[in-house]
Design a protein around this nucleic acid. Sequence first.
DNA 1: CCCGACGGTATCGGCCTGCGATACGCTCGA
DNA 2: TCGAGCGTATCGCAGGCCGATACCGTCGGG
Lengths: 254, 254
Amino acid sequence: MSESHEIDERLFLRSVARAFAVLEVWSAEPRALSLGEIAKAAGIDKSAAQRICQTLVGLGYLERAPGGLVPGKRALDRAFDYLRITPLIERAAPVLATLRETCGERVDLSLFDGTTILYALRLQSRREAFFATLPGRRLPAFCTSGGRACMALMSDAAVDRLLSRSDLVARTRKTLTDPAAVLEKVREAREQGYACVMEETLLGEVVVAAPVTDSAGRPVAAVHIAGTLAEWSEAEFRRRFAPHAIAAADALSG
Amino acid sequence: MSESHEIDERLFLRSVARAFAVLEVWSAEPRALSLGEIAKAAGIDKSAAQRICQTLVGLGYLERAPGGLVPGKRALDRAFDYLRITPLIERAAPVLATLRETCGERVDLSLFDGTTILYALRLQSRREAFFATLPGRRLPAFCTSGGRACMALMSDAAVDRLLSRSDLVARTRKTLTDPAAVLEKVREAREQGYACVMEETLLGEVVVAAPVTDSAGRPVAAVHIAGTLAEWSEAEFRRRFAPHAIAAADALSG
DNA sequence: CCCGACGGTATCGGCCTGCGATACGCTCGA
DNA sequence: TCGAGCGTATCGCAGGCCGATACCGTCGGG
């Protein structure tokens, strides 16, 4: 995913890393897990798993449940800290609310992180029952509208590097997995100022997205507007909503 | 806050606990922090803070920012794991969406945790711009509608214990801080099946809440409906929305 | 019925890892 | 020109963590 910058291993705390490796087990296996399962999935022995889990339960980051252990409520506190401290989130909330009212479709703010995007704010549309539309969801950048919008602000070489580090696996039968094809879409987004993705993460879904930059002009996030092909044609959706996405993203940039 | 169950200290990993102590520093000091500040706030020396922060940056749980370090995006992934695994959240999402449509006011699902409640799902009303209405926010149980609704399902003795462990500090000039007065409100909630709190956490705000139980009948969460006194009288708000809160909470219980 | 596999729990000696004192170069503002 | 911060880097000692091992339940199958 994102290895940040090769950390000096002399200052690396193995026990801390193993504790987080334990917490991360549930992202691949979302159910109550036993000590043995945790140990195997995290690549540690049962003794270490025992010590780590006891500690994490004591701290509230894991909870005992019928059938084993599950993530604890403390995880929500840490996420809240992140959302509260990040100025972009605070600025984006009212902008997205307005956008949602104007457009009537689902609008999202996603954060650009390495080879992925991460939904931070999501305002569902009235008609769509939100299921699995929770903040914190992470998707690959290469096949999402927000990801491509962000890539559009990078050089072709940087886009190539990102794509080469990505796991280019198709999520639907329409997902583009050829790096050259993705790059072509990124170039189109660069020219238009927004990206449009059709059914590449969810069949029947059309999404336009515009990039949000930091003060140095680097892409850090994207504003998405998502609709369904049951109600819109691609051309009509682009024409109608792309300008709004761009305007909102601009308001949040810099 | 919630010490769960006194953990065997022979199996307690000090280095892991210190790493989380570092992460938790930002909940009291929501801004970019330097190593020295982190060390002082977490009660460790600068060397330990250096090693822990290097490790957490490498793992993505902290990020470098102008002026110091801030929480990292990985926190959102862990919160997502929690929300995805907890069956109550999944069941609650469509119920709250319907409730939001029916009532037109802000509706929340809060989780009952020790002496506090924790907002897990929040659907803002159309007219209110949401600011600081993020999931993950934690409030004391004693002065919130959801907290009192949950306490109503406990024995008086258990409520007393909870109140004695709580920090009974007023949030507004209307907050009840006398344990006996709070207990009286809890008894009222026990009789009525829901709690109503007026301006005790936010001036001008009225909230009704009903408790959600697990299969053993223990309170685990609450459904809130919140409005403003600019639009509603207490009596009218209770009459109109309490039945909906109770119905939704019942649907999620057991 | 007894066994083996699995659950969680507990113990312990030894080694390696994390500890914390210390020092360095840098950028501020006084 | 300081001194107080900042982040960074080093290093020997000590003791905290490691992981093998064992224990006691509860299953379900042979």
